[in-house]
Design a protein around this nucleic acid. Sequence first.
DNA 1: GACACAGTTGACAATCATTGTCGATAAACT
DNA 2: AGTTTATCGACAATGATTGTCAACTGTGTC
Lengths: 152, 152
Amino acid sequence: MRTVEELSERFRDQGLRVTPQRQAIFGLLQGDASHPTVEALYERARSAMPTISLKTVYQTVHDLGAMHEVGLIHLGTGSVRVDPNVEHAHHHLICTACGRVRDVLVDVRDLRLAARDRRGFRVADVEVHFRGVCEDCAAPGVQTDDQTKHKE
Amino acid sequence: MRTVEELSERFRDQGLRVTPQRQAIFGLLQGDASHPTVEALYERARSAMPTISLKTVYQTVHDLGAMHEVGLIHLGTGSVRVDPNVEHAHHHLICTACGRVRDVLVDVRDLRLAARDRRGFRVADVEVHFRGVCEDCAAPGVQTDDQTKHKE
DNA sequence: GACACAGTTGACAATCATTGTCGATAAACT
DNA sequence: AGTTTATCGACAATGATTGTCAACTGTGTC
């Protein structure tokens, strides 16, 4: 994703103001591969800026999403997750035990639909979800921090 | 999906009782390729059985899901959708304009992950979402019934 | 056929993620 | 410096889904 400075620039260009809270969120998303929920982002933001409101985080994340500077992905985990990786096409591994999400590079070009199946449908985007159990959750006993425990 | 009789059988085998409302729901799902939400199913059920409760529909759908007689899919449309097609592996076309969902047969076997990417992750299931605009929504003017209008 | 108990209903409350409201304050850009 | 936009805080409200509880009904069983 773009740097804090670049994002600030883009916000100004859109007529949006660059506030410390927005910049804080920009900063938190730098190099974050954890696909945090908005709540998780909010918690992290509060460490640095205790008065920031959840509302503000939602709004900023939406703004970023609207300008395609982050992806807002629904993975069936109940809440939207923020994906700062927009420059490289990729897909997701989802651990059904701990809820963690990881990026994977998958070549999707051979996933062409039969014309028979397409029937006039104009495909804009292909999304692949790999569901399963991650290494940590498969290992017996050795439990790591499971941020978003959930069953399915 | 299985017939009403077969499903009734399976319910009894699991120690679950076969009630008229459950059978009504079984019947509604027969050959239903619309991927209805629970609400939509509820509405249809009420036509035939006006006193059925939403709670009952949720419960029955869950029971069916737990025994893998239907799929419960999250497509980022806000609500769970019921997919009666469990015998044939397939994937989904999702119209971002009207929310309709269609099945497509896609060969996913070549979607193998690089061992480097897998890193001990045990993949149990692969899900492919094709997002785009369906024929009806692409056609100008000619609007069909859009059950679940939504923006993204 | 009788019975125990699972299932259903209805009327609500409660949850979770998310969005809206509103008035007051602060601070970013021109 | 002033206009306008963001933020805060404290809530209320939404929509999907689940829980509760008490009363009633009907299913599977003996």
